[in-house]
Nucleic acid binder design. Structure first.
Lengths: 331, 331
DNA sequence: TTGAAAGCGCTACCAT
DNA sequence: ATGGTAGCGCTTTCAA
């Protein structure tokens, strides 16, 4: 069933049918209704490929992240998918994994599918590395980066102010008398370096020096972080607070702390990051930074709509994060 | 840049270029190489819409779930996306939410995008309700259902044996002397009724009668489940074990139990379901059923490939689940 | 091994 | 308000 069949049945030309399809005002109500009825009766669906061929677009957005199984990316994808759909776009999902080559490959795949734009979630694309592939992509379609920054044309970055969030966290801890604050992180991403900067800044502000052995990289893995934090606590018993770049690491720290017989938050307090489901599941519950991934994502989609409607939009938008206070640390 | 441009540069016809594009053997190596070189040089990408128009497919699979933000669906989507991509398919993601009308709408949307098949994750499509929309869809493209069952043509169901898993859980509890076993569930899905059946069966097997007030529906929400379980425990102090249809509910139960001053597993033991990240984060860690979502998903994709290659495949495949023993209950 | 040409189904421009 | 028609870029069949 195609536009010709419909036209034939209705006794009109395909042009008229096409007009009805595209909501053109230049069709008499009577003709329009007749055509609509026939479409309904025949359960007609326009061929998206033919339309795409003419328009060179089928309103589809490539959404890239390293892994949707990650609870944080999953939330982001969920919000983005919904926001896109509300605007008539579909989301073509692409989980790249961590290998750079795969990321490039998947970008090419998305371009080959003629997506209208690409949304990159997370900051797997580190500044210090070669990002020319992203720049190339942005020459073909607009690129939106959530929680990452690349200063390219046609590239729009929406980032959480995680530097400031971490800055405030550490300042609060210092104000409470903590000076030996362990910082756990797992990835060297844009967002990762922002957080470290915030941590460092708080020390500088307070005229204290950062002890490098307090800034520790651990795998994003519960057992590994428990193990590592135990070692650290035994080696440096003066540690009285832990902050982490990710709730999972903070949960690992909490387990380590508890297993060594300390109490949270009395002996050692803990602050996580991402305000994930995990932060409510632990006992005590975990104080954590909400980097407003919901706002980041909806902002990204709004920006995308604006770009497509020809509006002039900012290349970099920063959204402030927010500490969600629970039991593991009270302001 | 299109096939005509390439043909012109190479001094051949578009038919020859098309042959190269499709890996036809009927091209002389020399011509082929020349064309390949030009494509490379010009950074040529075939137009997917034109190709789709002719072939009526662009190797894209619609993947439906109620919400990818849910940790369980996220894992499933992740595995499916990867498996599809390894087979040259893209995943068009669709999060429908819970409303039936939306589910229908999104199915139509996917069909309009001319997806080659549809994968339904979870069993949001309850047997007792009207599933004619799914049947209709299956008349156009094959439908694969993960953890749900609908006996339609061109519909393939891959389900975890959760009935048996729950059956075994409860039998084990009964064998340990527990008779008042609370069962918490959140959704009336296919998988949900399987679990209840397993629970009931274990009681029947053991010549005990199920007390209906021990089978309790709670919202999938931490605070709500904590609250509810506290009430229940106060009202029925004889409860000595809790099983749940979802880890989150089990975590809620654990919090309730702990807050009332009981010890896990000594006073009350707990078994979760889905073997999610949460089960490792609690203290004590949560014993939970792994329903092998990884196997379910890869099996679904394998089935899909088989269907497309014309093989005859089973309409219903059951995969056995597996109890992962942690601290909250030991066999 | 290669080429010519007929679709595939739709959009949009130009007429009327 | 409606019709005619030229693309859009590719696949595939038929000839050579």
């Amino acid at each position: 069933m195609n536009i010709y069949d419909i036209a034939k049945q209705a006794g009109v030309s395909i042009a008229t049918v096409s007009r009805v399809l595209n909501g053109s005002p230049n069709v008499s109500p009577k003709t329009k209704q007749k055509i609509l009825d026939i479409m309904e009766k025949e359960d007609y669906t326009p061929n998206i490929f033919a339309r795409g061929l003419g328009l060179n677009s089928i309103k589809m957005i490539g959404v890239l992240c390293t892994d949707v199984a990650d609870i944080y990316y999953a939330k982001a994808v969920s919000i983005i998918e919904n926001a896109l759909r509300q605007n008539g776009f579909d989301a073509l999902l692409c989980c790249t994994g961590d290998a750079l080559d795969d990321k490039k490959k998947y970008l090419d795949l998305l371009l080959a599918k003629r997506v209208d734009a690409i949304i990159l979630i997370g900051s797997p694309f580190k500044e210090k590395f070669d990002n020319s592939h992203i720049e190339q992509v942005s020459q073909k379609v607009p690129v939106f980066i959530i929680n990452g920054f690349l200063p390219f044309d046609n590239t729009y970055c929406i980032i959480g102010d995680e530097k400031e969030a971490m800055h405030q966290n550490v300042l609060s801890l210092i104000a409470k008398g903590h000076t030996e604050i362990l910082y756990l992180y797992d990835a060297e991403t844009y967002s990762g370096s922002q957080k470290i900067d915030g941590y460092t800044l708080a020390y500088t502000d307070s005229h204290l020096t950062v002890r490098p052995e307090l800034v520790v990289k651990v795998p994003k893995n519960l057992l590994a972080s428990v193990q590592k934090v135990k070692e650290l606590l035994l080696k440096m018993p003066s540690i009285s607070a832990v902050t982490a770049s990710e709730d999972l690491l903070a949960v690992g720290a909490m387990k380590a702390i508890t297993e060594l017989g300390y109490t949270i938050p009395e002996d050692i307090c803990v602050i996580g990051f991402n305000n994930s489901l995990l932060s409510e599941c632990t006992s005590p519950t975990l104080t954590s930074v909400d980097n407003r991934v919901d706002i980041l994502c909806t902002t990204a989609v709004n920006l995308l709509i604006d770009v497509f409607s020809g509006k002039s939009v900012a290349n970099k938008i920063t959204i402030s994060s927010k500490l969600i206070e629970r039991e593991s640390f009270k302001l």
